[in-house]
Amino acid sequence: MKKWIALSGALMVLLLTGCAQPKKPYDYTAFRASKPASILVLPAANTSPDINAAHSLNSLVTRPLAEAGYYVFPVAVVEETFQQNGLTSGSDAQAVSAKRLDEIFHADSALYISISDYGSSYRVIDSVTTVTAKARLVDLRSGKEIWQGSATATDNDQGNNNNNGVIGILVSAAIKQISDNVTDKAHTVAGLTSNRLLAQNEQGGLLTGPRYKVVSAR
């Protein structure tokens, strides 16, 4: 009987460990071959209900890109250039060919961002602010995609530990949603999403660029 229990336990461990497959490292072959030094951030394509989502996320992605060592074209100037040419939405701007973008901006690469979630949603016992985005980097000299990634962030990853009963939870959720709308918490969460999306990590992210400098502590 003891042998059977031991055998069953060993088999269970084998099954559990067999299910956990190691994550395959991101393939940066195309990225390394491209060696982009400058990035043109195109106006984001927004499918979320919030009309401010594209402006919010576009204003935040510049920092992680610059900190990673890339020259980033000023997003306000880029947006104004498109608008002066009648391209008022992110989808319109992203429809311009890589060749044409290269001719206009002379950038090594262009970052295409799409936003699917942005803002707070009221649930039965909570209010959650979520920002989800996907991105891909295209070499404008060749027109080839050299990187892609996705990320999501919320203000409620830790869950709700409120112990004030159902009524208390409902009231807290309603107050939290109102507060989120007033303070535009989605913009703060978008900053976390942009860092998760672009910073190099176990999910992929961008490799550091030619201007990247490691500041050593003295």
Results as ranks from 00 to 15, higher is better:
136 R>V: 00
189 V>T: 11
25 P>T: 14
102 D>T: 06
173 A>H: 01
29 T>C: 04
194 S>E: 04
2 K>D: 05
45 A>S: 15
155 D>Y: 11
87 L>V: 01
124 V>Q: 10
113 I>G: 01
140 L>S: 05
159 G>H: 11
96 V>F: 02
72 V>R: 01
92 D>I: 03
71 Y>D: 05
171 V>I: 13
50 D>G: 09
169 I>A: 15
84 Q>H: 12
116 S>F: 06
173 A>V: 01
92 D>P: 03
43 P>T: 12
83 Q>I: 03
89 S>A: 04
70 Y>W: 03
158 Q>F: 10
193 T>C: 10
132 T>A: 13
107 A>W: 03
68 A>D: 08
140 L>F: 11
134 K>L: 05
74 P>K: 03
12 M>C: 12
95 A>V: 06
83 Q>V: 02
23 K>M: 07
99 K>E: 13
117 D>R: 15
112 Y>C: 02
181 N>D: 12
27 D>W: 08
8 S>E: 06
44 A>W: 02
127 S>N: 12
50 D>E: 15
195 N>F: 11
118 Y>R: 12
170 L>Y: 11
20 A>C: 03
138 V>T: 03
45 A>M: 08
96 V>L: 04
216 S>Y: 09
47 T>L: 07
53 A>K: 07
8 S>T: 14
206 L>C: 07
135 A>S: 08
